[in-house]
Amino acid sequence: MLKLSNVAVSYGSFTAIKHVNIEVAKGEIVVLLGANGAGKSTTFRSISGISKLSQGEIYFQNSPIGGRAPDKNVQAGIVQCAEGRKLFPQMTVQENLRMGAFVHRMKKAEIKHSLEKVYNLFPILKEKNHDDAGSLSGGQQQMLAIGRALMSKPKLLMLDEPSVGLAPLIVEQMFKVIEEINREGITVLLAEQNANAALSIADKGYVFENGEIVVQGTAGDLLANGEVRKAYIGV
């Protein structure tokens, strides 16, 4: 479904990622692991079209999408729930969700249906319907960010460190939700530092170090890999 072929991205003269090869099959959960600054978010930004490629190509459903504008990618079903959430803080929860359905803005009934689905997935959002997004707790904001991404009916959903800064109980809940989303047929690409939890729900993973992929394999392989365990799980 998604294929990155020898992708590199630079910020000015600084090369943030290079030689990145990733393949994601339909229906999978694939996790990108790596410490802060390893290049996970940059990889996401390149897939979304926010950062331009300096090398390589990206294929989505077998057609090249490298260099395509972000809004076109969202229309095609590539949706990212970014680091820092990027909500609209002075809009209400419902307004944020409605903006999430921007690419389907002509289909009123469909939007209503999606809204119900998101509210079912995150009942707390329904309760906070009319509150400003900026007034929500961290966990609620993360749910809203995921909910907003779901409103655009993604085929590929990219989640950039959804568990960061959340209480352990909420983190557990978050990973359950991600599995549930995946079960509905949405392919998930997940960036995480919480390797244990991420690998436990993933099919396979890639480990980034200094902008390059250093290890890759099935979730089982990575969990069994001593170096990965030492670096990212701490046992």
């Binding site: 949706v79 990212q80 970014a82 990027k86 909500l87 609209f88 803080p89 002075q90 921007f102």
Partner: peptide, 21 residues
């Protein structure tokens, strides 16, 4: 109209929901 408000609150957020900024 609301894309204008959205973009003023978060340009990147607007991009992420598929708004052509």
């Amino acid at each position: 109209g609301s894309t204008i408000i959205a973009m003023s609150q978060s340009r990147e957020g607007a991009s992420l929901v598929g708004i052509n900024i």
